[in-house]
Structure formats: structure tokens, C-alpha cells
Design a protein around this nucleic acid. Structure first.
Length: 566
DNA sequence: TCTACAGGCGCG
DNA sequence: AAAGCGCGCCTGTAGA
């Protein structure tokens, strides 16, 4: 289905493209300004594989999820209509996917290799159009349509980028990865065998435990072995073991580090996920309730720093890596209109700014206090330092404290652009009700208090984490647009970036995103322009969300390889 | 024998 | 150092 928002919806929506028309669309001098479809993941990968890149889209599945929950959508006919469209609801355990939905009916696209309809949203054009109209109604009547429109556009842009970055992949050096593994673990062992250095360390640990047959990989057995030699830890976690003074500790911690590397990102991972010179994580936009992306397969959100050197540009290309310094507290300053916190953040490290204002004594304390305020810490150093922030930044702290109270009471909270937290579960309500009843026990009441506080910490963090995710999406979308406008590069070395696919082999493109960090793979000649686009994008994202509120989002930005830095 | 869960640890 | 938010993945074990 092709819909241009500025044109007559019904007429265009009923067009069904043949394969030949794809190429017309792709090469059209005046391309489709915005595609509306049921599910980006369902169609866009196949389009990209045919060399068809789209400008923008409206992803009905993702937008439905936002609108269905959003506090910004007024109660009334439009909200009821959304709630009465169960097929657009995200599949859960209670609502399994309808088997083989929409096979015979006229579907959106004629593509030979249609992927399975994994999310189960309707494929039929009439259903798709009806949903689009429902969503427009809902936005039109919302309490703040402009913010909601921004959010839907950002979410949809993210959906497009998630597919594109999967297709492009992160350029990955097998040689560098193998060298890191060999340095740490020894030569690659036979399948199923243990690496040499792991064996050696295991022997040292067993000797320190005076037990040649001790099992180091079973938590309960290891705990018993430790107890036998006088290490009376309650768990075998790294931080707890580190507190004990015993010859077994140091080699054991090293053993755990190595086995983790081998099992999580060892040779098997390399073969499966990056063997062809590209790491292609599966991004899941909107996969976290706060609006952050989740991932599925490959552990895209957990590539250890140790392996970062394996991210390596193709010949003739380079990487521009950028991350935002202290994104969440900056977002908090802006959404609460806290000028004092914004001042502390301006043009420098935000934590240094807090120290310079005399609120706490050290950067480390400032960081602990700020994280504690946003996460809801009540104990330890973090809890102890939060009151100082509360005095210095009453607006910012007031916003997160209020969000916590709302969640504690069973209410819902929303991000700056209108993504709303889930309602309290039936179980949660039941626990609260029981504690308020006439025959409530002490245990009932303490359980209820605990679950109320847990929920308060969740809503406290939701507003900040969720708004940060919105800022990041706006940044991503802006950068994508800037890169698309760069002139194509013709004189590239042969072979460079071919693994990124036809669409991205001659152009700077985003290839990685993780909450507050992006990586662009670019021809060397355009690296400076890309860096400038990334900086400008951060500033435009700030203005798009927060208007003229004086908050900035400084970036740590590196162009690699860079002889001066590496 | 298969599945669900807990512990642990990587990332922001 | 770890507590306080959000994730995914691996391993071994407990339970069916």
C-alpha cells in the first residue's frame, strides 16, 4: 500500500503494486513522501534487498501500541475505536497470534519472498486503512496532538532505521575478534572443548580450593566448595567474592571473566553472528515499555567493551562514533524546566557542573546521587546524597518524585511526547486491596508496601528513560535524513562496504544504535561532514522536543581509526 | 526428556 | 564498591 499523507488516502491506499512498479517507485523523481503500512518489519527488509529505500513511514503496529496506551488520547469515540481493534494489539500470552491471518485476502504487497507475518497484525488493505483512519482520529482529538505526532513519526523512523541497520550491519573484523579471543583464552579449542587458559585457571582455582574435582560452573556446588575453605559468601557474584581475602578469589574471578567471554562472545558467537564481516543484530523498536529498543539475537545490547576493537571500518571507509554525555539527567532538566540543572549541564560534564555548583564534593558523588534520584535509591551512599540534589534542583527532583508517587498510588505516567506507562496489573491491585482490608496481616501490608515502592521506582524512571529514548529517536531520524542528503561517493576502493548491501555500499549510513550512542559507517572523504551532521542533529533534536529551553546535548564524538587517538 | 526458573553478568 | 531503573543471553538445576 502506498499512501501519501498529503493526497487522497482512499484512492492511493487501494493501489496494489506489482513487482515492476517497485522499481518505478524507487526511481521516481518525486518519491512517496510517507508510506503507511501495517508493520515495517514485515515488508521493508525485502524492499531494501531489492534496492528500494524509503523516505519515511507510518508504522501502524507501533503507533497503535503508543496511542492505545497514551494518556494524551482523550476518552471518547476515537479511544474506544482503538480499544475495539484487538487485532492491532501486541501479541501477548493471553492473546496469541491468529494462525494464518490474512492469507487469502488482498494483502499490501505482491512480493515473492514474503516474510511470515510474525506479529499477526492485519494484512488486508481495508483493515489497514481503517486502522490508519482510527489513528488519525485519535491524534486529532488528543490533548497534545503535536507532541503525539512527533512521537509517532519518531517511532516510525526508528522502525525504518532498525531494518536498515540490520541490513547494513556493523563492520566487524574477524581477525581482530580472533586475536582478542586468542590473547585471552588461548588457541581456538575443538567444538565442545575448553580453551587452554580456562583449563589452566580452573586448575589453579581447584588447587586453591584443595579439591581437584570441584565444579566451578555450578553455582550451588561452587558455593559449597568456597564454604569449605572458609569463604562464607552468600552468593558467587563477582562483587561479593571480591570482598573476601583468600587465595582462591583472584583466580576464580579471572576464571569467571574468561568463561563469560568464551560462552557469550567466543568463537561460536563469531561464527554465528559476525562470520561474514558484519554483525547484524535484530533490533526491536518499542520493545521496552519505556520506548527503548530491545534486541533479539546476537546480544546487540551487550557487546562487551573488550570486543569494541573488532568494530572496524572497511578499506576506504571510516567509522564515526558518537554518544551523548549524561543524556537522562539532561532530558530531566529540560522536561522539568529546571534552569539550575540546565546551567550545571551547559557546555560541560553535567556531574562536574553539579560539583562546581557546590552541591556535592566529587564527580563520583554527583553521579551516584543523580542516578539514585532517577532510579529511586533509598539506601547507601546514593540514598544519602539524593537530598542534596533535592535542595539544589527542586524542579527536576520534584518531577521524578511526583512520578514515583503516582506509580506508588497505582497511577500511570507519561513521557514528554506522550508514551504512557502500563496500568497497574490486576495482581498488583489485588495485593494493595488485601493490605487495606479488615483482616490484613502484617505480612500482607509489608508485601503491599514493597510492591507499591517497586512500582514507584518504575514510574519514576519511566518518565526519564522514556523521554531520553524519544530524544534519541529524534536524533537518529535527523541524522538519517542528513546522511541521505549527502552526495553519493563514486571513487571508492573496490570491495569496500559491499557487505552492507547495494543500498549502503556507496553511501554513509547508520550501522549501530544503543540508547544514547550511534555509529555511522562512511566513506573517509565524508567523515567530517558526517560528524557535523551528527552534532547538528543533536541540537535539532533538542529544539524539536524542548523548543527554546536552554539545554544542550554535548557529544563524545570520535572518527576511527584515528591515528591521534588510537 | 523437556521446560521454567534462578543466578550471574554483559550493556545503557 | 553496590544500590536503585531498563534489557538479553548463557548455564545448571529443579520440577513436571
Amino acid at each position: 500500500m502506498v499512501v501519501d499523507l498529503e493526497d487522497d488516502l482512499t484512492e492511493l491506499a487501494r493501489r496494489r503494486l506489482t513487482e515492476g512498479e517497485w522499481h518505478d517507485v524507487a526511481s521516481h523523481a518525486d518519491p512517496i513522501s510517507r508510506w503507511v503500512w501495517n508493520d515495517t518489519t514485515r515488508w521493508y527488509g525485502a524492499l531494501l534487498a531489492r534496492g528500494i529505500e524509503i523516505a519515511r513511514c507510518h508504522d501502524l503496529r507501533l503507533c497503535h501500541a503508543i496511542l492505545h496506551a497514551s494518556e494524551f488520547v482523550s476518552d471518547g469515540a476515537a479511544r474506544t475505536a482503538l480499544r475495539d481493534a484487538p487485532r492491532w494489539q501486541a501479541a501477548t500470552d493471553e492473546t496469541p497470534l491468529p494462525a494464518g491471518a490474512a492469507t487469502a485476502a488482498q494483502t499490501l504487497f505482491d512480493i515473492d519472498e514474503q516474510p511470515a507475518n510474525a506479529t499477526g497484525v492485519p494484512d488486508e488493505i481495508d483493515e489497514v486503512l481503517a486502522e490508519f483512519l482510527r489513528q488519525q482520529e485519535a491524534v486529532h482529538g488528543a490533548s497534545d496532538p503535536s507532541r503525539l505526532r512527533l512521537l509517532l513519526a519518531a517511532e516510525s523512523a526508528g522502525a525504518v532505521l532498525a531494518v536498515e541497520m540490520h541490513a547494513a550491519g556493523v563492520p566487524w573484523s574477524r581477525a581482530v575478534h580472533e586475536r582478542i579471543l586468542e590473547d585471552a583464552l588461548g588457541p581456538r579449542p575443538a567444538t565442545g572443548a575448553t580453551a587452554r587458559k580456562v583449563q589452566e585457571l580452573g586448575a589453579i582455582v581447584r588447587a586453591a580450593l584443595s579439591d581437584e574435582t570441584a565444579s566451578l560452573d555450578s553455582q550451588p556446588k561452587l558455593l559449597r566448595s568456597l564454604h569449605r575453605v572458609g569463604v562464607l559468601a552468600r552468593s558467587t557474584s563477582r562483587w561479593e567474592l571480591a570482598e573476601y581475602d583468600h587465595p582462591v578469589i583472584e583466580p576464580l574471578l579471572q576464571y569467571k571473566k574468561l568463561t563469560r567471554l568464551a560462552s557469550a562472545n567466543g568463537w561460536a558467537w563469531l561464527d554465528e553472528w559476525a562470520g561474514d564481516g558484519r554483525f547484524r543484530p535484530v533490533y526491536v523498536p518499542g520493545g521496552v515499555v519505556t520506548g527503548r529498543w530491545a534486541s533479539s539475537g546476537g546480544g546487540a545490547l551487550q557487546i562487551p567493551r573488550q570486543l569494541r576493537p573488532a568494530v572496524h571500518a572497511d578499506p576506504g571507509w571510516t567509522l564515526v562514533v558518537a554518544d551523548v554525555a549524561q543524556l537522562e539527567p539532561r532530558v530531566l532538566a529540560a522536561m522539568s524546566r529546571d534552569l539550575a540543572l540546565a546551567d550545571a549541564a551547559r557546555g560541560r560534564d553535567l556531574y562536574d557542573g553539579i560539583v562546581a555548583s557546590g552541591i556535592v564534593a566529587s564527580r563520583q558523588e554527583a553521579k551516584i546521587a543523580m542516578l539514585g534520584a532517577m532510579y529511586g535509591a533509598t539506601t547507601g551512599d546514593s540514598g544519602r546524597l539524593v537530598p542534596a540534589l533535592r535542595r539544589a534542583y527542586p524542579r527536576a527532583m520534584g518531577l521524578v518524585d511526583a512520578a514515583a508517587r503516582t506509580g506508588d498510588d497505582g497511577g500511570i505516567v507519561s513521557t514528554w511526547l506522550g508514551r504512557t506507562s502500563p496500568a497497574a496489573s490486576a495482581l498488583w491491585r489485588e495485593v494493595q486491596d488485601r493490605a487495606g482490608g479488615p483482616d490484613a496481616t502484617e505480612a500482607d501490608q509489608s508485601r503491599a508496601r514493597r510492591s507499591a515502592r517497586d512500582r514507584g521506582r518504575f514510574t519514576r524512571n519511566f518518565v526519564v528513560q522514556g523521554t531520553a529514548a524519544e530524544w534519541a529517536l529524534a536524533w537518529l531520524a535527523d541524522v538519517r535524513g542528513s546522511l541521505a542528503a549527502l552526495p553519493p561517493v563514486s571513487d571508492l576502493p573496490e570491495g569496500g562496504a559491499v557487505a552492507s548491501g547495494a543500498v549502503f555500499s556507496r553511501r554513509a549510513h547508520l550501522c549501530f544504535f544503543l540508547h544514547d550512542e550511534i555509529i555511522v559507517h562512511t566513506p573517509v572523504a565524508q567523515a567530517d561532514g558526517v560528524a557535523e551532521a551528527i552534532r547538528a542533529g543533536a541540537e535539532r533534536a533538542a529544539r524539536l522536543l524542548f523548543g527554546d529551553f536552554p539545554i544542550d546535548f554535548p557529544l563524545d564524538l570520535r572518527i576511527t581509526p584515528d591515528a591521534a587517538k588510537s
